[in-house]
């Protein structure tokens, strides 16, 4: 555990809590992509199956359970409790265009051809693209509430900090996880355009982020 890894995890947790509280308090999931949240729930489910097979640490177990619970709680707020506020018209990204290539790639490029490893690989690849329905939705509607952009900022910062964590671990431990690193770089690239808009429009301006 190093400072980049820990702060990355904290940012990840903060992002998920921001989104959950935003929906809970406003009793609305307007502007939120239910598809992205479903994909994240699928990411956590397929990655954390090792909860049943391996014990790493109390920290590791607790965080995995918290992420799983919050992911499914968020999905249920969007699709059940506050379903009426869900903008399915704007959430029109075709997730099969992500799921099919990601599933195919995880069978082709993995560390070992076992169910748990393939599912872990699938979750890593899927996470790198899971935010695309949300970014697509913002592009389509042309705006995002500032609280939604704070969520995206922390979610993007989390994987960016993991990149620093992997550089650190490579130097300190000789640890290099090719699948996670390459996917993490791809994932971070997707946020670059958003980061730019976040700093130039949300933090310097006020209220909503509107696209040109």
């Amino acid at each position: 555990m190093n400072i980049f890894r820990l702060s990355g995890d904290v940012c990840h947790l903060v992002a998920i809590i921001i989104l959950f509280l935003k929906i809970w308090r406003s009793k609305s999931c307007a502007g939120i992509s239910g598809k992205s949240q479903l994909l994240f729930a699928l990411v956590f489910t397929t990655r954390y199956l090792d909860l049943f097979t391996a014990f790493i640490s109390i920290y590791n177990t607790v965080m995995k359970v918290v992420f799983l619970v919050l992911a499914y709680a968020t999905v249920s707020l969007i699709y059940f409790r506050f379903r009426k506020s869900y903008d399915s018209e704007s959430d029109s990204f075709r997730v099969e265009f992500l799921l099919v290539p990601v599933a195919g790639l995880s069978f082709l490029e993995n560390y070992s051809f076992t169910p748990l490893e393939i599912l872990w690989t699938f979750s890593i690849y899927l996470e790198s693209v899971a935010i695309l329905p949300q970014l697509f939705m913002i592009t389509k509607t042309g705006e995002a509430e500032s609280i939604t952009t704070h969520y995206l900022f922390f979610l993007g910062l989390y994987r960016t900090l993991y990149l620093a964590n992997w550089v650190w671990r490579y130097h300190e431990e000789g640890f290099f996880d090719q699948i996670a690193v390459v996917s993490g770089v791809v994932q971070t690239i997707f946020y670059c355009d958003f980061f730019y808009l976040y700093f130039t429009r949300v933090l310097r301006g006020s209220g909503k982020m509107t696209l040109p």
Binding site: D9, H12, D50, A54, N60, Y111, W120, I179, A180
Partner: peptide, 10 residues
């Protein structure tokens, strides 16, 4: 191996 080590990350 890498396949085992990566499990400590979230």
């Amino acid at each position: 191996s890498t396949a085992e080590n990566h499990k400590d990350e979230l």
